[in-house]
Design a protein around this nucleic acid. Sequence first.
DNA 1: GAAAATATGCCAGTGACCGGCATTAGCTGG
DNA 2: CCAGCTAATGCCGGTCACTGGCATATTTTC
Lengths: 254, 254
Amino acid sequence: MPVTGISWQQAFAGGWRGGASTLGAVREGSPAGNEGDERPAGPAGPAGLTLRERKKLRTRRALVEEALRLFTEQGFGETTLDELVDAVEISQRTFFRTFASKEDVALAPEKELWAAYVAGIEARPPGPGRSPLASYQETLFAAVREMAEGWERRFLCSRALCERTPALLAHSLRHCAEVTDRVLHITAERRPAAGGGRDQELRLLLLLELMLAAWRWAVRQWAAAGQGADREALYGHMREAFAAIPDAAALARH
Amino acid sequence: MPVTGISWQQAFAGGWRGGASTLGAVREGSPAGNEGDERPAGPAGPAGLTLRERKKLRTRRALVEEALRLFTEQGFGETTLDELVDAVEISQRTFFRTFASKEDVALAPEKELWAAYVAGIEARPPGPGRSPLASYQETLFAAVREMAEGWERRFLCSRALCERTPALLAHSLRHCAEVTDRVLHITAERRPAAGGGRDQELRLLLLLELMLAAWRWAVRQWAAAGQGADREALYGHMREAFAAIPDAAALARH
DNA sequence: GAAAATATGCCAGTGACCGGCATTAGCTGG
DNA sequence: CCAGCTAATGCCGGTCACTGGCATATTTTC
């Protein structure tokens, strides 16, 4: 029984808040916005979900919780899927219908954030006078803000695992790249006849990747601070990292 | 037998050039620079390598060649390791002593480039008046320039596979991130008492990631051009992407 | 040419992941 | 409250990437 630095009991004291924002890996049909509680008919529970959906959510959350616990305690590679599914009392088959891979469950908190980010980009088009970079940044702040209670604990666990486990880092970076692509597609479709074309898209790509690099740095600093890191501290690191972007940009103009 | 767009015969006509730059995944002990042919004793072949080393290099190259062929012909996931090792007539065990994973062999051309890049960063410290971004860019040009003949063909195959296969993309991005870390460490160690500290490092990180984003864009454009893409075309895309960096930087200064 | 150092092949085992099928649990109309 | 439908789940067997151990073969060294 190898023991890592962080005590589990103190790291995992929080709970989950309601919010129907994370049923599956991808959001349900609702086309962003329009979050009413009503349904035409059928038994809709407290959160506007059927029993089946709530049950699925429960096992999904239990899986994430147990996975983060086991992986941080004994390591990602050292934990078998059988251990995990036994702890949650489901079959392997069910696990793979809930998550695409062993890595997926460890990165759930991160995927949650990026899903909210993409939704935010889709929801509010930037005002006419707004700088695209500022708009990207504000949307990221908003996405963090709307994460459920206890998210920061899970996210920090996930991040710590990424730094220990190359396979997780790889998956994380790929997902981030996919988000980049999606965001770029969305913004590109909005300016159909706007000037620039390819060049403009390249510039937007560079701005977005600049922000993502700053974000990754901020998260690293945050995670390095240890278990006492709360969300306010993350905002601080983000502000610091984003503030460095103009400085770096100045250096980039020969 | 599924057939992809590119005919194999026409895609794979080139050969390998000598150059002892890719024996193992990591370079041998020689501390950069100092590339003489002499050895104290022992049977040193034409390229300054022993028989054993040359043999290993041969199977390594054959593996890359066959892997790229099979993967592009029938897909990465659809090709089993047994097929590959049978084609090269070695055992699985030997494969895993040569490459760390199935993904690794498909990404060999990319790793080769980044190894040369890191070596270049280590070899020549930037002059006192040089902009760090310009220095990063020149080193990347130099790394591409020193790749062996036929590298562009292999690299393009590898890239095309990355875009088809999520697992390969993930591995590629992770390796790129590791290179980023290493480069940053090297440059950080060089300025031990130089001003700035954390802030300066963050700015360097942002510049480096900016260049890497531009590089990835350039490679994408290059690969999109299809099989007729030669190295000169890559330089063109790189110049275009790098030229966009100052423009994007201007947008990043509110 | 013998001894030491390495490389290779074979084999058996582990663990992630997937398709198929029977069973169960939740939903729907009477 | 009960049949009929849909969908989630569990079980089973199979594939395939990857690993450690050990015997064999090849290269290097003396």
